[in-house]
């Protein structure tokens, strides 16, 4: 009698779980219709920069013309992207929406940021992420040893059939 009761309970629990997952899957879980490289909508890229420091103007910056002594330089495939240095705050992700200049094939994003000299006694870092259609496409963390500017290049490749939204 006890054995039959255990078997019945087992059937009820397992059957219930199976029914729950069978019912839940198709209705509630968003399903990616394709891989990231085959997205059938126009691509929009975002750049997310998350530093361990607040960038500040660099007293050691080159000042030979009308260039700003900015604490932050972002270049996409060699083209400078206007990102104000004072928007880079410690621990806060800075999002550059609709990142222009990304092409099918090989790409490279260059980031150079100037940590405060007052905090030169410790290493600093900045995390760089390229987001495409809500999915991370490429990411890296660049480190600067004590006193140095944080500099790095993030290379990534994009499939040639991608269409661009800008």
């Amino acid at each position: 009698m006890r054995f039959v009761l255990v078997v019945c309970l087992w059937v009820i629990v397992i059957g219930g779980l199976r029914w729950y997952y069978a019912d839940r899957g198709p209705k509630n879980i968003p399903v990616r219709e394709a891989t990231a490289s085959q997205v059938a909508v126009e691509d929009v890229f975002r750049l997310v920069l998350t530093p361990t420091f607040a960038a500040e103007p660099d007293p050691f910056a080159l000042r030979v013309g009308d260039e700003a002594a900015g604490g932050l330089v972002v270049r996409v495939n060699g083209r400078q992207v206007a990102v104000p240095a004072d928007s880079l705050r410690q621990g806060e992700p800075l999002v550059v929406e609709q990142l222009a200049g990304i092409q099918p094939g090989s790409n490279e994003i260059f980031v150079e940021a100037s940590p405060p000299l007052a905090a030169s006694g410790r290493s600093q870092a900045i995390r760089v992420q390229v987001i495409r259609a809500g999915q991370p496409l490429a990411e890296a963390t660049f480190w600067g040893e004590s006193g140095a500017r944080v500099v790095g290049s993030l290379p990534f490749t994009l499939d040639a059939e991608v269409r661009h939204g800008h």
């Binding site: 660099d58 000299l117 030169s120 006694g121 040893e145 006193g147």
Partner: peptide, 25 residues
């Protein structure tokens, strides 16, 4: 070319400054 050299040297000066602070500490 001059800008590239100057930029590299300025970076070295920045690291020198941080290094001096670390040593003097």
């Amino acid at each position: 070319e001059y800008e590239a050299r100057a930029r590299l040297y300025l970076q070295q000066l920045r690291v020198l400054d941080a290094w001096i602070r670390e040593q003097v500490d």
